[in-house]
C-alpha cells in the first residue's frame, strides 16, 4: 500500500501509478467509515460494540430475523401490512418484546400477550437479533445492569413518579388494568427490571414512550426500585386478594362473610327445644 504522509511532489509524481486508484478508493472509504463512526448515534458501549464491532452477531441476528420475524416485519424489517417497520426501534425494543415472549406474536390480536419463550429465544439469540435491528437504524439501546439495579434506586421517589405516570393504566401496585378495544395494561408482576426500563424507553404496544428527557434514567431506576419492592412485599394484612382494591374485598365480604354467618344462623336455629 502507498502511504499518504509524503510531500506533494512525490504524490503528484505517482498519481499515475497503477495502484493509485486503489489508494484513492481506500482513502475515501476510510474517511467515510471513520466519519460515520463519529457521527453515528452513540449508544452505550456494549451496544456500540454489538452494533458495529461484532459483525458476526449482526449476521446471525439477520438469520434469526428472517426465520422468526420477517413474515410480518418484512425481509429487511421494512414492515408489512401485518407488522410495523423495525428500522429505528432499537435494541431495547427487541429485547423487551422477545425476552417477554410477546414477539414473535402468536396471533394478530389487539395486543400481544406475555408468553413462555420459544426454544430458540435464548439470551444469546436475543442479543444477536437486537444487534441486527440496532444495526438497521439505531434507536433506544438496552440499559446496563447498573441502570436497572433496584438496590441503587430510591423507592419513595420512584413511588411518587409511579403514581403520577403509571398507575392510571397499570393499577396502584402494577396489577394491570383494562384499556379500550381489547387492549390492556399488563400486570408488572413478571417484568424484569430491564424489561420495565425498556418498556418505558420504547413504549411498546399501547404504552406511551417515557424517554430520558421525560423521565431520566435515575428516575427510571427509582421507579423500578418501587415496583420491585412493593411487588415483593408480604401483605401485612393477610391475603392480598389480588391487590386490585375493593372489588375482591366485596366479593370476599359476601361470599365468605355473609355465607359463614348464614350458615351459623341456620346451625343455631336448627337446634330446637322439642317442647311443642
Amino acid at each position: 500500500m502507498i502511504g499518504t504522509g509524503r510531500s506533494v511532489k512525490p504524490i503528484t509524481a505517482r498519481r499515475r501509478h497503477p495502484l493509485a486508484r486503489f489508494a484513492v478508493v481506500a482513502l475515501a472509504l476510510g474517511l467515510l467509515g471513520g466519519g460515520y463512526a463519529l457521527a453515528a448515534p452513540n449508544g452505550s458501549t456494549a451496544d456500540a460494540a454489538v452494533a458495529s464491532g461484532k459483525a458476526d452477531d449482526v449476521a446471525k441476528g439477520k438469520d434469526l430475523f428472517v426465520a422468526h420475524c420477517a413474515s410480518c416485519h418484512g425481509l429487511n424489517a421494512e414492515g408489512t401490512k401485518s407488522g410495523p417497520t423495525l428500522v429505528g426501534v432499537g435494541a431495547a425494543a427487541v429485547d423487551f418484546q422477545v425476552s417477554s415472549g410477546r414477539m414473535p406474536a402468536a396471533d394478530p390480536g389487539a395486543q400481544a400477550p406475555r408468553k413462555p419463550l420459544d426454544e430458540w429465544a435464548t439470551p444469546e439469540a436475543i442479543d444477536q437479533l437486537a444487534a441486527y435491528v440496532q444495526s438497521l437504524g439505531g434507536g433506544p439501546t438496552r440499559p446496563t445492569a447498573e441502570q436497572v439495579d433496584p438496590a441503587k434506586g430510591d423507592p419513595a421517589k420512584g413511588g411518587e413518579l409511579f403514581r403520577a405516570n403509571c398507575i392510571q393504566c397499570h393499577n396502584f401496585v402494577g396489577a394491570g388494568g383494562a384499556l379500550t378495544y381489547g387492549k390492556y395494561a399488563p400486570p408488572l408482576h413478571e417484568s424484569s427490571p430491564t424489561q420495565i426500563y425498556e418498556a418505558m424507553a420504547t413504549g411498546p404496544q399501547a404504552m406511551p414512550v417515557f424517554n430520558d428527557s421525560v423521565i431520566t434514567p435515575e428516575q427510571k431506576r427509582d421507579m423500578i426500585a418501587y415496583i420491585t419492592s412493593v411487588r415483593g412485599q408480604v401483605d401485612p394484612g393477610g391475603a392480598g386478594l389480588g391487590r386490585i382494591g375493593p372489588v375482591t374485598e366485596g366479593l370476599v365480604g359476601w361470599v365468605v362473610g355473609i355465607s359463614l354467618l348464614v350458615l351459623a344462623a341456620i346451625w343455631i336455629t336448627a337446634k330446637k327445644r322439642q317442647a311443642h
Binding site: 413511588g159 411518587e160 403514581r163 403520577a164 398507575i167 392510571q168 393504566c169 397499570h170 393499577n171 396502584f172 401496585v173 396489577a175 394491570g176 388494568g177 383494562a178 395494561a185 412493593v230 401483605d235 401485612p236 394484612g237 393477610g238 391475603a239 392480598g240 386478594l241 391487590r243 386490585i244 382494591g245 375493593p246 372489588v247 374485598e249 366485596g250 370476599v252 365480604g253 359476601w254 365468605v256
Partner: peptide
C-alpha cells in the same frame, strides 16, 4: 384477608388516579 391497603395506594393528590379505582361494594 387484607382490606383497604392504604399504604399501596399512596397519598391523595388530585392529579393521580389508579386503574381499577372502585368504591366499597
Amino acid at each position: 384477608a387484607q382490606i383497604n391497603p392504604i399504604w399501596l395506594f399512596g397519598p391523595y393528590t388530585p392529579a393521580d388516579i389508579s386503574a381499577g379505582s372502585q368504591p366499597d361494594w
